[in-house]
């Protein structure tokens, strides 16, 4: 089994666990209303990382220079 397949299956299991334990069995309690979204952790992980990558890549258009820039 390839590494990517393991990753996809892990993601799926985590989403199922989040929905089962938090949404169906109500084992957790969030601080905010938006935490009540199904699989909140997975959403933060996905969109948060996407946000970081997009910001970093657009920033690098301005700040990334050749290594001898300061010499």
């Amino acid at each position: 089994m390839s590494f990517k397949k393991i990753l996809y299956i892990t993601c799926l299991i985590v989403v199922i666990l989040e929905i089962v334990f938090l949404k169906l069995m109500h084992l957790g309690h969030g601080y905010f209303e938006f935490e009540e979204l199904p699989a909140f952790g997975a959403l933060v992980g996905f969109w948060g990382t996407l946000f970081i990558i997009i910001v970093a890549k657009s920033l690098s258009k301005v700040v990334t220079k050749r290594e001898d820039y300061y010499d």
């Binding site: 990753l7 985590v14 989403v15 938090l22 957790g28 952790g41 997975a42 933060v44 996905f46």
Partner: peptide
Amino acid sequence: TAQHILDTLGIFSFTGLVFA
């Protein structure tokens, strides 16, 4: 707590997914 552990696992697995 269940909430905290599961949120963290979600963040970890989906960050790995985006990286892949």
